[in-house]
Design a protein around this nucleic acid. Sequence first.
DNA 1: CTTCAAATATTACATCTGTAATAAAAATAT
DNA 2: ATATTTTTATTACAGATGTAATATTTGAAG
Lengths: 128, 128
Amino acid sequence: MAALPQISEAEFEVMKVVWKYAPISTNEITERLVRTTTWNPKTIQTLIKRLVTKGVLSYEKQSRVFVYTPLVKESDYIGQESASFLNRFYDGNIASMLSAYIDNDRLSESEIDTLRSLLSKGDKKREN
Amino acid sequence: MAALPQISEAEFEVMKVVWKYAPISTNEITERLVRTTTWNPKTIQTLIKRLVTKGVLSYEKQSRVFVYTPLVKESDYIGQESASFLNRFYDGNIASMLSAYIDNDRLSESEIDTLRSLLSKGDKKREN
DNA sequence: CTTCAAATATTACATCTGTAATAAAAATAT
DNA sequence: ATATTTTTATTACAGATGTAATATTTGAAG
């Protein structure tokens, strides 16, 4: 599992759009982000370019515009970030992480129920 | 809840030592980090200095050396980072985060048990 | 073909970070 | 008091990031 390319926070916003709508053109990416952020279109172009340079996006010229496709899977990237987060802040200990979230975020009863059922589903899988 | 100062990854390593051993002198911090990292003492000095500038550490001259104390609580900082992580990667949804960890990290039966008991403890608290 | 507009590419620039080296100040030893 | 050592402060410098502006290329319109 070679380490995935580094994706900055701003670049990640771009990637969220690409992951959701790929294949997607420069203009479509730009239109969407202009609505959800305060970024100048030029800024968005730069971010897209950097993602290509980093090998996170590939593109194909379709008629006259570029159309982008992710080279990194969203789940892979989020998975990697999650593992790294857990290690950095909770020493890799999921229980202490969950415990902190429970203490700070004061989960609702229904959230707790959802989590409980997640844990039993996990059981099922292991039974196979 | 004013946003805490930004703490970089390397600075965070320094803070872990300070949080654990404060009040602690420059030399003690340096000695410990020299053992656990590959950093040059000069690098560690720089990091300490930056933390002071950022308002994360305060110091007091004790006889002839500086002794540092954190101005930011570890739990506050980790709490803020955790909330931000959850938002950025899981849309603030704890269940989907936990679900991803369960799927990727293949928790052991005893880990699952620990998590379950965490969830029941949460119950107790809410019953009060 | 030439011109214009749209798309893409190149350049810019400040701040933050990692990683030190050099310089100055303060204590200690002589 | 001066030299030496220790501690702290200042300076350095490249790469990443946020945030664009300018320049060039290319396809479309005339």
